[in-house]
């Protein structure tokens, strides 16, 4: 079995003002998974991300990265952050360079790569996020959505093994929100893990294959989607909307004996194929 990227062992985190942001969480982040992190506002998602990045140290418990306890010295953190990338919720807080291309350059520049590798990574990231035309534009002339794309490109250019996105679609329009899941599909390799926190459940439902649900700093659920979306009480407690695909399939199943054996699917297309099969 491959070693999971992260293992949390009874981790708690207390802010200096005594708010318990994370309460005794134990979980593992497996290799090669597309993980959606759900939970209402203030449930501890952002704190969890800070713990992943080594920006905060747990007040209690242990965090392992690839089987080794996290080292909070300069070298340890540098190694961790080479492999784990975080796209912040507010792009404005993340971008600090003068132009688009320069901002994307900064991450790779600090990775001791060769010039060619840096250039090709930056070009790849620019092409992926469709920023070619804006390459030399100063950051402060960009719109919110464009800034978001630059932020994503900047983290992606570093080729992280674990890519964390903190509510990435919050300032994107419909086109780029759906485009984002397409980018993520392109980035998907066998050993890359994504962590994606969001309130737009329908956007991630087609894509995610693993779910983590937080509620007031506690872990409510870890695992596949099927178990989560059939548990109505849990969904209500954690303020999670049921994906429309799940609701429709449930309604179909309850409405007519013909649909009783419908299986839960992750895409509209698969549902239509199933329905057609039953009709034949």
């Amino acid at each position: 079995m491959t070693v999971p990227y992260f293992s949390f062992e009874h981790v708690s985190f207390l802010y200096p003002d005594d708010t318990l942001a994370i309460n005794n969480i134990s979980l593992t982040i497996p290799v090669g998974k597309k993980i959606a992190i759900l939970g209402e506002n203030g449930s501890g998602k952002s704190t969890l991300f800070k713990l992943f990045m080594g920006l905060e140290r747990p007040s209690d418990g242990k965090i392992l990265f690839q089987g080794q306890p996290l080292m909070y010295n300069k070298k340890g953190l540098k190694q961790l952050r080479q492999q784990v990338g975080l796209v912040f919720q507010e792009a404005d807080n993340q971008l600090f360079a003068s132009t688009v291309k320069q901002d994307i350059l900064y991450g790779p520049l600090n990775l001791d790569w060769s010039t060619d590798k840096v250039n090709s990574q930056v070009e790849k990231a620019i092409a992926l996020t469709e920023l070619e035309k804006l390459e030399n534009r100063p950051i402060h002339f960009l719109s919110g959505g464009q800034k978001k794309r630059v932020a994503i490109a900047g983290v992606y250019a570093m080729e992280p093994k674990v890519l964390i996105l903190d509510e990435p679609t919050s300032s994107l329009d419909y086109y780029f929100s759906t485009q984002l899941t397409d980018y993520l599909k392109k980035l998907d390799t066998d050993d890359r893990t994504f962590l994606y926190s969001t309130h737009q459940i329908n956007l991630v439902y087609e894509w995610a294959d693993y779910y983590i649900v937080l509620h007031k700093g506690e872990l409510l659920y870890v695992g596949e989607g099927d178990g989560l979306f059939s548990d109505d009480d849990l969904l209500e407690k954690a303020h999670i909307e049921k994906p429309w695909l799940v609701s429709v399939i449930e309604m179909l199943k309850n409405s007519h004996p013909l649909w009783e054996n419908l299986e839960f699917t992750q895409s509209k297309e698969a549902l239509v194929t199933q329905i057609n099969k039953f009709l034949k």
């Binding site: 920006l55 080479q82 507010e90 600090f96 360079a97 600090n110 900047g154 570093m158």
Partner: peptide
């Protein structure tokens, strides 16, 4: 504060472009 965090996560130590 936020920008410092963002720089830390990207391992940025110096930022003059060669």
């Amino acid at each position: 504060e936020q920008m410092t965090l963002a720089m830390k996560t990207r391992n940025i130590e110096q930022f003059i472009i060669p």
